[in-house]
Write a protein that binds this DNA or RNA. Structure first.
Lengths: 222, 222
DNA sequence: TGCCACCTAGCTAGCGCCCGTTAGGTCTGA
DNA sequence: TCAGACCTAACGGGCGCTAGCTAGGTGGCA
């Protein structure tokens, strides 16, 4: 071709470009329904060239799913460790979850809907991360329960419920909708606090957490 | 073959058998990843014979998804209409949702994860049903809010959250686990009532609803 | 400075396989 | 005898992936 040498300014990180478009297509059509030919066409390279950057199709999916769950755990630890009260710590978890799912809805959702397409090895690796994340949530709930800040109906199911409905944000949130990420996060924090029968947090507190989460996830490698 | 004439006792409802196995395989491997050949092999008929019962693959998926969402709406109306207080009416919705998702986890989950594989026409039909269902939940919440029985943070997001985390039951519930359907339903009812800041319901009340829901969904055509 | 080995980022061509679906035949019980 | 419930055989096409090539840089060293 010769014409395309500098077509993109981001010519140097084709990998990132592939991942971005793959996330979009896997999210919209599903992993199995997306073909390497379509993905290549969307990027305007030949199919075989994808294999220069990734060894196979499944590795692209795994990279996407893995990066999100790692980021989720990293963000959760980072935010929780800075907070003192049980209410603030639970709020950190919810804010982290909602903000990441609103910032990267496509990749985030893949981790819920396309796990079955991973190889056994990759699936195990991912389940380990998800268990670790679940553990984090359960620990915060239990600590609050022990100290009397929370009244828990069922710790594990409460953790499941908070994670499940917070993840759902990725499927309906639109940046140009009626609510900002901060608004959405505030609602979900309030809901979570009610679920454990805790005091509500002042809005300023939540917005501070949202700002922290946004800057943490914006500056992270990927 | 000649040997297989009466192989199953349910020889007459091959359609049901196909649907049951398709639900299982679509749930476990995904719709796109399941082939008509595998499905036929699991039933022990030839691939072409599937086309005697269904015109194409997508119709099987649509039948499964559609039957669940219809059942969901039917059950919700049936249960809600019999209850008087706002707390009982919200509890009805949650119980109906949880019981159906625990009774038919595979079909239920397809309606959340495989919608994108439907044709445009079928998708529209399904979205109409889902919107109708969402409307039902929103209406119960708003009525409770108007009468002061509930204190709502955000009606629509609360509805989303309740639907999302109650649907999640389908992915983790096992009949031989630590909790019965009744136990699970009770937890989710309590969580939902907390989310709207309402009084908790006596356990007897919830168990009565569970029994109603179970018998309603057991005797329904499909 | 000039040359050459090597690297990066693609490319062409095609292999081997599996996909959903169909046309048309056959067996069996009522 | 005839219709319902299957079957055999195969079509056309798309799939993931690979072997092997190449144009244009980059770095080391004679």
């Amino acid at each position: 071709m010769g014409v395309n040498q500098q077509s993109d300014a981001t010519n140097l990180d084709r990998r990132k470009q592939i991942r971005r478009l793959a996330a979009e297509m896997f999210f919209e059509r599903g992993y199995e329904a997306t073909t390497m030919r379509e993905l290549a066409a969307a990027i305007d390279i030949k199919t075989a060239s994808l294999y220069y950057f990734f060894p196979n199709k499944e590795q692209i999916l795994f990279d996407l799913i893995e990066s999100v769950v790692k980021q989720l755990v990293l963000g959760a630890r980072h935010l929780v460790d800075n907070e003192r009260t049980h209410e603030q710590r639970l709020a950190s978890l919810v804010v982290n979850h909602v903000v990441l799912h609103a910032m990267r809805p496509k990749e985030s959702t893949l981790g819920d809907s396309e796990l079955r397409s991973l190889t056994k090895k990759h699936l195990r690796a991912n389940v380990r991360h998800r268990d670790e994340y679940e553990r984090l949530v359960v620990d915060v709930l239990e600590a609050g329960g022990r100290d009397g800040a929370f009244s828990l109906i069922d710790t594990k199911l409460t953790a499941y419920a908070i994670i499940a409905h917070s993840s759902h944000v990725g499927t309906w949130y639109r940046p140009d909708g009626r609510m900002s990420v901060g608004d959405v996060a505030e609602v979900y924090v309030d809901l979570a606090l009610r679920m454990v029968d805790a005091e509500s947090l002042p809005s300023d507190d939540v917005q501070r957490l949202v700002a922290n989460a946004e800057s943490f996830h914006a500056t992270q490698p990927t």
